[in-house]
Computed example of a mutant assay.
Amino acid sequence: MSQFTHLDSRGAAHMVDVGEKVVTHRTATAMSRVTMNPQTLAMIVEGRHHKGDVFAVARVAGIQAAKKCSDLIPLCHPLMLTKISVELTANTAESCVEIHATCKLDGKTGVEMEALTAASIAALTIYDMCKAVDKGMVISHTRLLTKTGGRSGDWQADE
């Protein structure tokens, strides 16, 4: 039997059957970072971007992305999320925007992919809105930070 839950004994991809799993409260928080020129970050923070409020648009994009995760990633289950938050913080010391996305639900499968998708799409939205002034932006540090609930229990990334 494969160690990968999305592969059957023959190695074929399939959606995992979660029908017999117990409903538990589950959360996941993921992050991403967009590094940019200091002038670009200042423009965002000071509200001088001609396209509007970059943080507001990125936040909404991240929330929408979490809700659409199962449409984007083929073997993800459609989930009834109870909470999605996307927080964006300007880090002037490192000239970047740090994104933290948290998803919650009471269900039979985890929300790690939804949190990762929210953080990723928020980062891509920042890039899209600012690419006209800073094509050299770098999206990085996209990773899961924490997850709770489920059979495997709680998990936290190393610092």
Rank of each mutant, 00 (worst) to 15 (best):
A56Q: 11
A132T: 08
K104C: 15
D106P: 06
K67S: 06
A122Q: 01
I121A: 03
R10D: 15
A12S: 12
L81R: 02
M36P: 07
H141C: 10
D106T: 04
M113H: 03
H6K: 11
L81H: 01
G110Y: 07
G150W: 07
K108Q: 15
G107Q: 03
I63S: 06
V133W: 03
T82K: 11
K104N: 12
V57Q: 05
A28R: 00
S9I: 12
A157W: 06
K67F: 09
T92H: 13
A65D: 03
R151A: 09
V18C: 10
G150L: 06
V60E: 05
S95C: 15
G47Q: 09
G153C: 09
I121H: 04
H49C: 07
Q64K: 11
A30Y: 00
C96G: 05
E46N: 14
A132V: 08
L81V: 10
A42Q: 12
I73W: 00
G110T: 05
I63K: 03
V45A: 13
V133R: 01
R10F: 12
L75C: 13
S2R: 13
T5H: 02
R26V: 05
T35Y: 10
K51D: 09
S140V: 00
H100L: 07
A30C: 02
T146D: 06
C130H: 01
G149E: 07
H100M: 06
L105Y: 03
V111A: 13
A61I: 01
L145H: 03
S95L: 04
L124Y: 08
G153I: 09
V57I: 14
V54N: 06
T24Y: 10
I63G: 03
G110I: 00
T27D: 10
T29N: 04
H100I: 05
Q3D: 15
A28L: 07
P74E: 00
Q156I: 11
T146I: 04
S95I: 03
I139D: 04
T142K: 10
A93M: 10
I139S: 09
M15A: 06
R151H: 13
T24A: 11
D106W: 07
E98G: 04
Q3A: 13
D53T: 06
R33A: 09
L72G: 11
T89D: 09
T148N: 03
E94W: 02
V22W: 10
K135D: 09
G47M: 08
S2H: 14
A66R: 08
L88A: 05
V111I: 12
G11C: 13
V60F: 02
V57W: 01
M1W: 08
P38V: 02
G52K: 07
D128R: 03
L144V: 08
A157P: 02
C96V: 04
V23N: 06
R59A: 02
S2I: 11
S140M: 00
R48I: 03
C76Q: 10
L144Q: 13
T35L: 12
V57H: 05
T5M: 04
D134H: 04
G47Y: 08
T24E: 09
K83T: 11
R33V: 12
T89I: 14
A119K: 02
A122G: 04
A58G: 05
Q39M: 10
Q39I: 04
L41V: 06
G153E: 09
M43V: 05
S152F: 12
M80E: 13
T142L: 13
L75N: 12
S70Y: 04
V97G: 11
M137H: 08
D53C: 01
C69G: 02
V86T: 00
T109W: 05
